[in-house]
């Protein structure tokens, strides 16, 4: 195995938008590093001229015609919202 992978857990958690406790950070980094260590075995393979597989079947041009079908009634659209007002989703003030 190559050098043990190191995860910048703070950076990854921030990208994933998950708050972690210090304890979780320690636990997850060591677990993820051990998984990455295992995953490292892929480097044994030479994949130089191998095409990547993004889909199990190579199908192209799957589309629909431009026709409006149906919508959700607004009451259904917002019924699961943790917080809503005027049929819109309430979020903390966003500064852009």
């Amino acid at each position: 195995m190559a050098e043990a992978p190191h995860i910048d857990i703070d950076k990854v958690a921030e990208l994933a938008r998950i708050a972690l406790t210090e304890e979780e950070k320690t636990k997850f980094s060591s677990q993820l590093e051990s998984i990455l260590g295992y995953i490292d075995k892929l480097n044994e393979l030479d994949t130089t001229n191998v095409e990547p597989t993004a889909h199990p079947h190579s199908v192209e041009n799957v589309w629909r015609e431009d026709r409006a079908t149906s919508e959700l009634p607004t009451c259904e659209a917002v019924k699961n919202a943790p917080k809503q007002r005027q049929n819109m989703f309430v979020v903390p003030k966003v500064v852009e």
Binding site: L45, T47, V50, E51, P52, T53
Partner: peptide, 14 residues
Amino acid sequence: AYYLKAQKTRTLIR
């Protein structure tokens, strides 16, 4: 190193 490599390995497995 990871995702692309895995997609390629997936081709080999297929």
